[in-house]
Design a protein around this nucleic acid. Structure first.
Lengths: 133, 133
DNA sequence: TGAAATAGGACTATGTTAGTCCACATTTAA
DNA sequence: TTAAATGTGGACTAACATAGTCCTATTTCA
C-alpha cells in the first residue's frame, strides 16, 4: 500500500500553522494544541525538520520555531525524507538496503520498477509545501 | 514512507512470467520455482488476481493460470488494489476508514492532500502491466 | 534561580506485512 | 475408481514498521 505517514501529515499541519503565524516564533506546544497532535511526537518531528534546515529554532524561554526558507522552496520530497528516511518504493532501491535482495541480478522487474520509482520521486519533488499551506 | 508491497512485486514478477509463457497454462509452482517466491504466499496472490479477473485459472491436474486480458489493459492501480485493498495515501481518504479521523472537518490539509492523492492515483492508473513485462 | 522552551535517547503499544500451515475441492490420467 | 497434481481458501504466526509515550538533559530569559 502506498501511504504517507502520520508523521508527514503532522509535519504538513505544523508547517502550515507556522507559515500562517508569519514571522512570529511558534512553540511546539502551540502547534500541538491547535492541531490536536501529540506533543512528544510533534517535538521529534520538528527537531528532524530543524536538522534538515527546513525549520530553525530558538531554544530557551520565549523560544520556538520558524521557517528557514520560503514554503515554495521546500519540496514535499525533502520533508518526507527528513522525517521517514528512505523514500524508495521498494527495499532494493534503497541506498542502504537493510538486507540484500535474494533475487539480486536475476530480478525480472528491476528496470521498470526503477523507472516507476523515478516518476514517483519526481511527483513528490515537484510538490512543495506551498501547495499545502 | 511510500512503498509498494512485496506482494505487488511478486504479482508483477508472476504476471511477467505468465506473459512470457505465451498462451501456455502456468502453474503456481513453476512461477514460484523460477522467481524464488514463497509458494503459499504466491498462491494467495494469484487467487486475488483471479478474483479481480486479471488472471483466469483451470483447476485440477494440468491446471494453471493464464492472463484474462492483454497486459496493456491492466493498470498497475488495479493490481495494487486487488492485492492490498485500499490505495489511499492517508487513512482518512479511504472509503471505509478503520477509525474516524479525530481532526474531522478542522483538518487543515485535507484539500491539498486529496489533490495529491488524485495525482498519485493517476500515475498508477497510467502505468500498466505492459510497462513491466 | 526557576520556569519555559528545545533536544534527544529509550521504551512500549499497535497495526501491517510477510510468510506458514493445513484441510479441502477439482481435474486428469493410469 | 483411485492417486497425483493442481487450485481454493481459512487460520495462524513471525517479523517489522509506525505511532505514541516517558523521562532526562540543555538552553535561555526574566
Amino acid at each position: 500500500m502506498i501511504r504517507i505517514s502520520k508523521k508527514v501529515e503532522y509535519a504538513l499541519m505544523a508547517l502550515k500553522f507556522i507559515s500562517n503565524s508569519d514571522h512570529k516564533l511558534v512553540t511546539a506546544r502551540e502547534i500541538s494544541d491547535n492541531n490536536n497532535i501529540p506533543y512528544d511526537l510533534l517535538s521529534k518531528i520538528l527537531q528532524k525538520l530543524k536538522n534538515e534546515n527546513i525549520l530553525s529554532s530558538n531554544q530557551g524561554m520565549n523560544g520556538g520555531y520558524f521557517l528557514s526558507k520560503r514554503t515554495d522552496e521546500i519540496p514535499l520530497y525533502n520533508l518526507m525524507s527528513a522525517i521517514d528516511g528512505d523514500t524508495v518504493i521498494v527495499e532494493c532501491l534503497s541506498e542502504h538496503p537493510m538486507k540484500d535482495c535474494c533475487l539480486e541480478d536475476t530480478c525480472s522487474i528491476k528496470s521498470p520498477v526503477t523507472k516507476l520509482q523515478k516518476e514517483v520521486e519526481e511527483l513528490f519533488k515537484r510538490k512543495t509545501i506551498s501547495d499545502f499551506v
